[in-house]
Design a protein around this nucleic acid. Structure first.
Length: 583
RNA sequence: GGGCACGUAGCUCAGUCCGGACAGAGCGUCGGACUUCUAAUCCGACGGUCGUGGGUUCGAGUCCCACCGUGCCCGCCA
């Protein structure tokens, strides 16, 4: 309804402007402040003052007079306030919003017919997932959900680095050191057990004598060469390490939850010949140069050359990533990648090179986030510094459980929660709080990890929004018990108070929020929206009794609660945060 | 040194892309509201040179320039 209303306003403004011989390239449509009852407004009158030779309020009045609301769908009235033209929606707008918002798929936009691959996380399989990179799966998964709601056919990919030096070191270390020489694993899980070899190997390379180190380097190089040559046995050896560690990491990511449709291995593009193929085409480019025995690309707009083939003839990460992205272009309409800001230059070079290879790089978009650091510095898997995501999630669940148990005593509601409920709520709230805290912020902002802050359940947090969902469910359940079912169709006329209208207006915006989040690839706008929606609901809740309301008001309010419930549930779903039915 | 990002209330953040209605929340502090559909709630008070200085504009937190501070990047690593 909101999107239709907006189209109507766009049409009305365009018609009015051209009728008065004003330019129609700037409609000035915006969202008015809260205290203005209009759903949309236009500030264009300001800019027309010069052209028209009249003060803005006068122009606004002329524009408003030019528009006949009856001609446009959902438009009730056009008013002016100073220089602003305000558009007020009709009863039908509210009636249909109330009905549409009760559908389970409310907020889902029509199919775009486009396939989108969202690549996120893609962390090197070297050890436990730590908080430093936890932003990637959380933002990436939310982004995938946003794009799905926006009508796209989405696939989530994890690009697995199984061909780099780190993995060769890991494989060598795993095959070289005895478990008896290693410390106890921090957890009973494959990646925690395996990372001990990786750390041991790296320590050894730093501390060993020169001759020992050279011997080790030889073994490591042999692994890299084996992969480059497509040697099956080497691939098997590396795969054992990679698959084991990755399996463990996915267990942690699954708790968020972040799941993937496909794990795309780097070696795939070495083994199928596409890396060699892209190297051949790169060599033919005008920008290709052969310097210092290595093939390089002299990219415009970049200071340094991009090496794509080493002097020993082996490929680099970037080379394989080019083949990877050509594969994405072959199989999807669009590709979105979530990357740490440290990959920005590399991503720009990738796009520039794909452009030189003749690809339409508008189909590739990158979303960057900055790392989560500790007060004392960055987190590193190799050095074992950092907070494991598993520990953060466990702690969040523990604290949420404490909260639930503390609140149990002075709980007003009579539906006793059993121990399963307590555990369910602890998980929903604990993990939801962590996830919401991350997804609600613009990813480019830096975050310093602090336990207290990450685990604050007050504030503008997930529980605040989740609580609204639980309240909605409570009212509906209570009503059902008293024989008051949510009506199928209802007249929004019965909703007369400002609190009811404000809530309905917020509910109506949801599809536009999805559209904006998808267009801008910024899931955090959905989080901001959930707060506004929850706030509007809580005001309504305080001022408007539902089940005790009289006459037509009761079914109308019940329908409003049902609409709020699906809107809250779906907006939380977009963020990947659970919507508890009680808490 | 060069490039990119970030800088809004004591603290954590919206708002900046696309300039417009008095710059909004939460936390903290102080003061109120549970015999009433769940108080993880609500209401009120206090709190702001929107990093600094210029510029463009009828109008700048938003656009441009310079500077300051912080982070990231500038490998034949990934």
């Amino acid at each position: 309804m909101y999107l239709s209303f907006r189209s109507a306003v766009v049409a009305a403004m365009g018609d009015a402007l051209s009728a008065l011989d004003f330019p129609t390239d700037d409609l000035g449509i915006e969202r008015p402040p809260e205290d203005v009852p209009a759903v949309l407004a236009s500030s264009v009158a300001y800019r027309l003052a010069d052209v028209a030779g009249a003060p803005p309020p006068e122009i606004a009045a002329d524009l408003a007079a030019e528009i006949d609301p009856d001609v446009y769908a959902y438009l009730e009235d056009v008013e002016t306030r100073g220089p602003y033209v305000n558009f007020l929606p009709s009863d039908r707008y509210f009636d249909e919003t109330l009905e549409a918002a009760q559908a389970d798929d409310y907020g889902t936009l029509p199919d775009t017919g486009e396939s989108v691959v969202v690549e996120h996380t893609s962390a090197n399989p070297t050890g436990p997932v730590h908080v430093g990179r936890a932003r990637n799966p959380i933002v990436g998964d939310a982004l995938a959900r946003v794009l799905e709601y926006a009508g796209n056919d989405v696939e989530r990919h994890y690009y697995v680095n199984d061909a780099g030096r780190q993995i060769a070191v890991f494989t060598w270390a795993y095959e070289t050191f005895e478990e008896s020489a290693l410390p106890e694993p921090e957890r009973d899980s494959p990646e925690y057990e395996m990372v001990r070899y990786y750390r041991k190997g790296n320590d050894y390379l730093e501390e060993a004598s020169e001759s020992d180190r050279e011997a080790a380097e030889e073994a490591i190089q042999a692994i890299l060469q084996g992969l480059e040559e497509g040697d099956e046995e080497t691939y098997e050896r590396v795969s054992e390490v990679v698959d084991t560690v990755l399996g463990g990491m996915c267990g942690t990511l699954g708790r968020l939850p972040a799941e993937f449709d496909e794990f795309v291995k780097e070696t795939r593009f070495m083994r199928d010949g596409s890396t060699d193929d892209v190297v051949d085409r790169l060599k033919d480019l005008d920008a290709a140069v052969f310097e210092d025995d290595a093939w390089q690309l002299d990219l415009p707009d970049f200071e340094k050359n991009l090496v794509f083939l080493r002097s020993d003839g082996t490929s680099l990460y970037t080379t394989r990533d080019l083949a990877h992205h050509e594969w994405k272009f072959d199989n999807f309409d669009r590709a979105v990648t979530v990357l740490g800001e440290d990959h920005k230059l590399q991503a720009d070079q990738l796009s520039a090179t794909l452009d030189l290879l003749g690809h339409d790089t508008d189909r590739l978009q990158q979303v960057f986030y900055s790392w989560v650091n500790l007060p004392e510095g960055g987190m590193s898997t190799r050095e074992g510094t950092g907070v494991d995501l598993d520990d953060l999630l466990d702690e969040a669940i523990d604290r949420a459980r404490d909260e639930v148990e503390n609140r149990l005593e002075d709980r007003q509601r009579s539906d006793d929660l059993d121990s399963d409920d307590v555990e369910r709520i602890a998980h929903q709230v604990g993990i939801g709080a962590v996830r919401y805290d991350v997804v609600a912020k613009q990813p480019t902002k830096g975050i310093t990890f602090e336990w207290e802050r990450a685990l604050d359940f007050e504030a503008q947090s997930a529980p605040y929004v989740q609580y609204v969902h639980a309240r909605c469910c409570g009212i509906i359940e209570e009503g059902r018990g008293a024989g008051q079912e949510v009506p199928d169709a209802v007249d929004a006329d019965a909703l007369t108070t400002a609190a009811e209208r404000d809530l309905l207006r917020e509910i109506a915006r949801f599809p536009a929020v999805i559209e904006q989040a998808a267009d801008e690839l910024r899931p955090h706008v959905v989080a901001t929206y959930t707060r506004d929606l929850a706030e509007a609901f809580n005001v309504f809740y305080r001022e408007c009794p539902v089940l005790d309301a009289d006459g037509e008001t009761r079914p109308a309010r019940l329908a409003l609660v049902a609409a709020a419930r699906t809107t809250i549930a779906n907006s939380l779903d977009v963020l990947g945060v659970a919507a508890p039915e009680s808490m």
